[in-house]
């Protein structure tokens, strides 16, 4: 029959690469923010030792894995295989991830629009979302961060400047 053809599932390599870089950077920023910001530190302290969470895109990534090891927060890379996860924030598809990481949809709006699945206990998920909001405020200029969070926080300029410098440097240098 000649009225049939098969279209293999293609790839969106550029978009995948963009999301992978964003997740990599946020993962490393989380690692630094856990030391540089008292509020983030308190949130992570409340999570149990060994707690591990992943955020990524269905069905095949990219992923960001972050865990608490020996009391410290570590970026554990981008491969979830073989890692026991306590919490997974799954973005349903790559286009939804692009909407989120180009700040056209905030985390709250993406959740409301059912673009993201939270797999795991709700209390740590709430803590992780609060942490991600704080890190976004550090990483993004105010006019963009206002799109990403529900309410832009009123921080002192020293908290913003010192924290932003430490987190950017730490994320780039990996320490």
């Amino acid at each position: 029959m000649n009225d049939y053809r098969e279209a293999p599932a293609g790839r969106k390599s550029l978009k995948r690469a963009y999301v992978a870089v964003m997740l990599w950077f946020v993962g490393r920023a989380l690692q630094v923010a856990a030391r540089a910001d008292a509020e983030v530190r308190r949130e992570f302290e409340a999570l149990p030792e060994g707690f591990t969470f992943a955020m990524g895109v269905l069905p095949a990534g990219p992923w960001m894995i972050v865990g608490k090891r020996a009391g410290r927060i570590r970026y554990l890379g981008w491969r979830p295989e073989g890692i026991a996860l306590d919490l997974t924030l799954k973005i349903k598809h790559l286009e939804a991830a692009i909407l989120m990481f180009t700040f056209r949809e905030s985390t709250a709006v993406a959740t409301a629009r059912n673009r993201m699945i939270v797999d795991g206990e709700v209390p740590p998920a709430c803590a992780i979302v609060r942490i991600l909001d704080i890190v976004e405020v550090y990483l993004l200029p105010k006019f963009i961060a206002r799109l990403a969070v529900k309410r832009y926080p009123r921080w002192s300029w020293t908290r913003k400047l010192v924290g932003r410098t430490r987190i950017y440097l730490g994320a780039v240098l990996g320490r």
Binding site: E6, A7, A9, P59, H93, L94
Partner: peptide, 10 residues
Amino acid sequence: FADSGMPLGL
């Protein structure tokens, strides 16, 4: 459907 890993018959 790109990046979904799901081919389509058309």
